[in-house]
Design a protein around this nucleic acid. Sequence first.
DNA 1: CTGCATCCGACTCGATACTG
DNA 2: CAGTATCGAGTCGGATGCAG
Lengths: 229, 229
Amino acid sequence: MGASYYQFCPVAKAMELLDERWTLLIVRELLSGSGRFNELRRGVPRMSPTLLSKRLNQLARAGVLTKKDDRYILTPAGEELRPVVEALAVWGVRWIGELGDQDLDPQLLLWDMRRNIVPGALPAHRTVILFAFPDVPARTRHWWLVLTPDNADVCDTDPGFEVSVTVTADLRDMVRIWRGDLSWPDALRSGALDLQGPETVRRTLPTWFALSPFAAVPRPAIHHVGGNS
Amino acid sequence: MGASYYQFCPVAKAMELLDERWTLLIVRELLSGSGRFNELRRGVPRMSPTLLSKRLNQLARAGVLTKKDDRYILTPAGEELRPVVEALAVWGVRWIGELGDQDLDPQLLLWDMRRNIVPGALPAHRTVILFAFPDVPARTRHWWLVLTPDNADVCDTDPGFEVSVTVTADLRDMVRIWRGDLSWPDALRSGALDLQGPETVRRTLPTWFALSPFAAVPRPAIHHVGGNS
DNA sequence: CTGCATCCGACTCGATACTG
DNA sequence: CAGTATCGAGTCGGATGCAG
């Protein structure tokens, strides 16, 4: 447990548990459907496994989750953290518009997109999307998304299948699209994003993905730069 | 600023600022109407003034508050943290029912009660309530609340006025009443709380205070002990 | 009284390597 | 796949001091 605040205030009692670094991000992952240890790790790749393990045990002791057969499951108390996480996300998307270059992790983006594929919107046959991020170091520049009607795989090495459509964009712009800061049509019009492939695929591709659940949150008139400085 | 999570996720970006110890409690105080440095201190008495100052500066840099003439004021971004704090309070009151003895700070209780006096419910003349907490060390056992129709003062030493009514209860029970875990009538019936004074005053006293804003939140059927262990 | 700055011990985090 | 072990660096928190 985090250190006590020595207050009976419910906010203080909640934060004793929840204000520790990484804790609510783990809850976010669990709310998004991840359950296994290494699945959770992919959602918090910069967290050491030691600390993840520690946090999971803390959350279990606090009654937020339980472990069953190598799967971590939210309890009702944990499920009820959804409004907290959602309120934070709404606030974050409205007031922390400026992202540092360090925040743009292509693996997290592809992982997120994979999670939010619209079931039933995909073509009936296997479709392979190649994402190319010219502004990213070679090592993580290319990503493949292998889509079949009932499965989706993210690869950071060429899986060997024929590419159906290539998406080229700066990673920053792809993230902005995903977050709802930039619309898909605007990105295409301005040239920030380029699609190469058969026209029918190019036209329907944007319908295959639901954007971030908070992409539609209305933004304030003025943004403040949340100082990474 | 807190350390970065290196994620574009809005929850992560929000938590970079908000997951640091004390930060959301300061926001809670500001949302409750406190504005001056030492007013804020009374809401977070265990926080060192150095750290409070540091956090206030961080929040100012992040655009959550501004300082004007020795008063800290929430910006629109700060005001929009209200849903976050409320969601946390609702969760806390539902799932962290067990309070440690250390959490029962009489000063915070009296301060909270003072803040939530129902305007217009008070008698027309000066009324003095003496709170006696037999389970508390002598130093902080007695508290006086001096009420006039347009003012209320908390004293930890006898202000000298005649006491209109004496409230005797274990601090834990008084806090439970305040949080909505125990009703005023139930406390009187069981003897957990005792009122001494004229009958009219004894009858109306419970109407002078609004309970904690989260006292009315429905509780889950089963509580989990949020381990202070 | 208000609003900080400095100093220092205790603790926590993060990086890396390692085990069943 | 699912975690543990170890250790240096950084941060928190409390005491103390000091300007306006």
